[in-house]
Write a protein that binds this DNA or RNA. Sequence first.
DNA 1: TATCTTTATATCGTTTACGATATAATTGCA
DNA 2: TGCAATTATATCGTAAACGATATAAAGATA
Lengths: 146, 146
Amino acid sequence: MTYEQLKLENQLCFPFYAASRLITREYQPFLDKLGITYPQYLTLLILWEEDGKAVNDIAKKLLLNTNTITPLLKRMEKQGLIKRERSGTDERKVLVHLTEAGAQMKEEAASIPQELAKRLLDSNMEVNDLIKLKDNLGAIISFLTK
Amino acid sequence: MTYEQLKLENQLCFPFYAASRLITREYQPFLDKLGITYPQYLTLLILWEEDGKAVNDIAKKLLLNTNTITPLLKRMEKQGLIKRERSGTDERKVLVHLTEAGAQMKEEAASIPQELAKRLLDSNMEVNDLIKLKDNLGAIISFLTK
DNA sequence: TATCTTTATATCGTTTACGATATAATTGCA
DNA sequence: TGCAATTATATCGTAAACGATATAAAGATA
């Protein structure tokens, strides 16, 4: 049997998988300068927006579990980007705070989004297509997370 | 500074990263039945389409390097899904062949694509949007790989 | 022919992802 | 109050990803 639907080219899933990795690779040169990885960058984005979040809040935002986030945060702590401390009001929670170094990295990272946007717009894609793409991905994400 | 562009919500990158993982999770129950992982499934798709490919051919199709593919293939070999053997005409190449078990898994996997498509169409998304999405992802991929 | 370059795989080390499970603090409720 | 559920984190094991590097075969070229 041929099974057209089983050809890699006909898979809907593969483009998601491939695009995700390729885009992460595009970030690599910029993140290398800062000495951080892509998930670490995402974690910093959250903390730059609001410092002192609990481990679980970060995990939920990134759609990850603590078995991924906990070791990641430990590495970031060892690098001196964040501090982790038990909450006083709820001893179960561990609150994550930026260090001075972690907070300052924000300035250095400020140009990354534009650099990436610029790069992606170098493709033949229209800005509108890119926005539509983001919206459609958002729709899938909210469907698959509810 | 607020740096609107640094908010997670405003990132173009995050939806790719999140959607990719969420979609892989949707495959999980189906792949669990077969006892394989998502990248292993993608590898089988390639071999079901054309058996006897070289390691590098598979790697190129999946946009991976041999440092990912080689251990993956070894695990698949240990599971009895494939065999690896040096090419006779070019001793550098290792050709990957399906075993009987690997070939037969195709029948069991045949329904997976429809199951997933069904699931994704349960979202509010139009078929046309989904197709457009696939095309746009394809455009980004071909841009980022050339 | 000698050797330099390219091609094809593999190995090593580090960092994600994630299922399964453990542990401790807090909450809810009989 | 007492104790069963829930919540929050962490740990363990396995499988990707991927940068850097190694090794060997094949091809190119002086």
